[in-house]
Design a protein around this nucleic acid. Structure first.
Lengths: 190, 190
DNA sequence: ACAAAAACTTACTATTTAGTCAGTTATTCT
DNA sequence: AGAATAACTGACTAAATAGTAAGTTTTTGT
């Protein structure tokens, strides 16, 4: 009796992603996944030879998600404000799920990862930063946003506020994250 | 033949600290420590019953270090500018060592830690934030710093910039960290 | 010098983990 | 319906890991 789940492979990726964000990459095993799905260890290995392969797929899906989000924002002809709201929302959701962003999680374990995966992380980070930079630059041109730094620098400031804000929230609570979030918006909105 | 090192206990803490910052808490084992010190596994257990106990000691030492730093800054009658330089310097050193800050590292594994350790992490974070907040507030009073947010909010912004900046540097390189660092100083210095 | 205490080593155990492979069951394609 | 393929299970192995207990060596204090 195979395929007890609509798509086991996708379920594995889903749970893997969740485990990385909640417990950290080096803190979970294939057993954690197989138990949740009520399948055997070997079934996870069937879909993903090793943990690195699973991580690579998780990262690929993030890259896809961001590409899709970008496409949607273009199609909607979304304002820079709306786009930034969407970006920020992703982090707020993490806080409510007692999770942290995948990049922040992986940054901790970065030195234990094989080169191929490091490259994929780099690709994802570069992509997200580029998207936000373009959004901030466009928002400045349209008069929606105001900031004196370059768009690139402002992006680094905003994204580090968000990423570490989510991490901090785990330790000191949601209030600190909310303070950070409001400050970011206040600064951009002048 | 015991005590091959001046103080094995301290060496264990030193290596443990380093491993957490470079590989992550859940990515190292007692074997990593015992091999480096050329002692047996059991010797590490003699000093620290379990990994959590070692982590607790690592955190205690950080708390002590920050208390000492605070004391020194008071004794020197240091300016807010000098104090902030000292705080920021700690993060710059991490970047050069391809490490991340201990709090950022632990944030990833936070949900896998026992309550007693979580409390210690909370204590450390609260302490550091309080110190920086006081420094920023004092710098504002003296006219050294300028910012429109409250000292507490500005602290959250600056510290999340630094913490995530160090994490980002691992992935995209030192340049991004330097950009962030310069922006922080620029903003505070008006 | 010698007893007590501290700092180990030796030698284990139990558990977890990653991973393999041959065989079984289910699905899809023709 | 039957063959091919996909998706598993069962039954392992090898290595890593946390941890313990008993005994040995070293250091410290008297």
């Amino acid at each position: 009796m195979a395929a007890r789940h609509t798509d086991t492979r996708e379920e594995i990726v889903r749970i893997g992603t969740q485990l990385i964000k909640s417990h950290g990459y080096n803190a979970f095993s294939y057993a954690d996944i197989s138990e949740q799905l009520q399948i055997k260890n070997a079934a996870v290995h069937y879909h993903f030879r090793g943990k690195e392969d699973l991580l690579a797929e998780v990262l690929d899906q993030y890259i896809d998600q961001y590409q899709l989000l970008k496409k949607q924002l273009v199609q909607l002809n979304a304002s820079a404000t709306f786009a930034m709201e969407k970006f920020i929302e992703r982090y707020s959701i993490l806080v409510d799920a007692n999770s942290i962003c995948i990049i922040g999680s992986i940054a901790s374990d970065y030195n234990t990862l094989p080169e191929s995966v490091k490259e994929k992380v780099h690709q994802l980070v570069t992509m997200v930063l580029k998207m936000v930079e373009e959004t901030l630059a466009s928002g400045k041109r349209s008069g929606e946003f105001q900031f004196s730094e370059t768009a690139k620098t402002q992006t680094l400031l905003v994204m580090t506020n968000l990423a570490a804000g989510v991490q901090l929230a785990r330790i000191t609570g949601k209030k600190d994250y909310d303070t950070i979030k409001r400050a970011i918006i206040r600064q951009l909105k002048g």
